[in-house]
Design a protein around this nucleic acid. Structure first.
Lengths: 363, 363
DNA sequence: GTTGGCACTCTTTCATTTCGAGTGCTAATA
DNA sequence: TATTAGCACTCGAAATGAAAGAGTGCCAAC
């Protein structure tokens, strides 16, 4: 059954009013605000039909109408127009994005924080999951008991580790090991680092002190760490601003679910290539804990052909339009910085300001 | 005015019962549980005096008694006996402390998480604030546009940065700069890195491309970063478990105050040397937002003669005894790992397990 | 100094009433 | 046929009031 133009307008009006006030919306209010030239009685008839069709529901007989998930879905898909951000907003976001992008992790966690601030909902950010390998090893001899392992990854981050041992090492061994690791351990994945490989390297290096295996462990560690995506959840407490979470138990349940991390968001591959913002409304969420909340997700290009996610969680009565606009803009800004396009380089004109791990290989 | 032995017992009983139930405690309940051989009428007389003395108060005329901050203070100072942890608890904590102490920051944030889990209150952890310097520079030439700066700090952590430039560099320059920075920039504080020093280094290195200043910026950045302590707040949502924070507004206020970080805890130097657990009850807190909450703080030895903090925030009706015991144990465990004593070294018997940045110089 | 007893106070709880927003329906109208 | 005015009706929210109960303070007796 098709939905008439007027019904659409009314539905939109209900959704928007309800989003604004969190109170069931009555026929009178619509007649006044929505500006279609008809009386509240007409609206009532239409509303009744919209209830029949499943787009709206009544909390009780003598109350106004509230959108159902299906109603929100219709609104998001067809009726809503993505809010435009004001100049001030875009500027503020850009500015916030520009300031101190230190470590990649820090950047992402900052972005999560920013998303939460902008939307006033809890936000989460997931780093991209990608098959990282080590591109280059350097082993720095410090003193007889100490050396530093430096590993440059394929995504151009650098990991290091200071190792202190009860045995004596010397610069020659370090050099030898550097060369061997660069030859044998670069460009491979975690599970390609086998005991066999370690043993043969150990023999080749004349290493009788187990140093090879220490370095290999480090390689395994950072590879496995780089593999799994990280989740940053921020602003959980903002949930308490929402009337639907004034019940502490409800709030607590969702908050503790959130704080366990990023199971919440669908795998990033699902979003690959999509520049769109995705909306999951109430029961559309898989997780039981989210069945009466909504999630809005944008994906960003994290470079290296991978995508990460920024998401926001709130009641189904969420301001989809504003949130979508903000997340989309945020994701785009982040993509610009992390992803393809011109690889940012150290800005030497900024006298003493350094931008952290920004530099990412162009691909 | 001295406080009689019996009054002490009664006060302790009130505090403990109130901590347990969060309900005002009546004379009858005390007569039954506290096991002093006297009737509820006697207790009533004593209670009335305790109210006069300021240790207890009545929410209203016909209610039981509730401890005042002064009452809690008396309890904490004189009446409470620190709870002993059960064997299982100590074992669990130790185990959790042992698993993957990666980066120092991660360790501290994990400990914060652990503290929150153990106590079921929000927890925060502060890293130590210390005058860190750089001990050693290594500048690694990668390719004509790329190099890596590696800086080993006086607290034996290692920082690195990948720099990508639009100009060409060569290995010779890198070597020269390495030597110069090791000579001129080690062992000094952030504000000793003056434009003068940078300029003279630049000239000495024949650096016409501003690379010296890039490296100097990095030095400044990591020094200033290492200077300021970092705060990790976890488990804010656990506040909602507490009846005194069932009011969402109250909870929200405190939670958002907490999430702004570590202004909450007094500076760590105050705690220097003290192995004690410190308790701040209600109005004893300086921050307005904490005036009716309590904070329990333990300090840990972070090595290098510095101390960090672990704290827990909750209602004044906090289980001080249990919390103090847990925090104290946790701090001790952390101190053992980070602080003085035998410097931990890479355990090579653990075949493939590496403990991260653990190794700390003995001093 | 301690105790039993008892009147008193104040909150909590529950039922009842009132109020009002909003509906659904009917009949009149364009 | 679609729209509208009017009106009775429903149901929740807020207000009111009565009853219950916990706990006290105090007094007189021990």
């Amino acid at each position: 059954m098709a939905i008439s133009e007027r019904k659409k307008k009314i539905l939109a009006a209900v959704v928007e009013e309800y989003i604004r006030t969190a109170e069931p919306v009555g026929s009178k209010a619509i007649a006044q605000t929505a500006g279609l030239g008809c009386s509240s009685a007409t609206i009532r008839n239409e509303l009744a039909e919209l209830v029949n069709m499943g787009y709206l529901e009544q909390p009780h007989t003598s109350a106004g109408r509230v959108p159902t998930p299906m109603g929100y879905r219709m609104y998001v898909n067809e009726l809503m127009q993505m809010q435009k951000l004001s100049l001030e907003e875009t500027e503020e976001i850009n500015q916030r994005l520009n300031t101190k992008l230190q470590e990649l992790d820090d950047t992402i966690s900052q972005v999560s924080r920013l998303a939460s601030q902008l939307t006033d909902y809890p936000a989460l950010a997931l780093t991209a999951q990608s098959a990282v390998t080590i591109k280059r090893f350097d082993i720095i001899y410090v003193d007889a008991n100490t050396f530093i392992i430096v590993a440059m990854m394929s995504n151009n981050t650098v990991k290091n580790k200071l190792v202190r041992l009860p045995v004596s090492v010397n610069e020659g061994l370090m050099k030898k090991l550097s060369a061997l690791f660069n030859a044998n351990f670069t460009g491979i994945s975690e599970d390609q680092i086998t005991p066999l490989l370690i043993n043969s390297t150990e023999r080749a290096a004349d290493d009788t002190m187990g140093i090879t295996s220490v370095i290999a462990s480090f390689a395994i560690e950072i590879l496995s760490e780089a593999d799994k995506p990280m989740a940053f959840v921020t602003g959980e407490n903002r949930l308490l601003n929402q009337p639907e979470y004034r019940d502490p138990d409800k709030a607590h349940k969702l908050m503790s679910y959130l704080s366990t991390g990023g199971h919440i968001l669908p795998p990033a591959d699902n979003m690959a290539g999509s520049e769109e913002v995705r909306v999951l409304i109430g029961p559309e969420n898989v997780a039981e804990e989210l069945k009466d909340s909504s999630v809005v997700i944008a994906s960003y290009d994290a470079g290296d052909n991978t995508r990460g996610l920024i998401g926001v969680v709130g009641p189904t009565r969420m301001d989809y339009s504003a949130v979508a606009a903000k997340l989309s803009f945020l994701a785009a800004g982040l993509s610009r910085r992390l992803g393809g396009g011109e690889a940012p380089v150290e800005g030497m004109h900024n006298k003493l300001i350094i931008k952290g791990d920004d530099p990412i290989e162009h691909r």
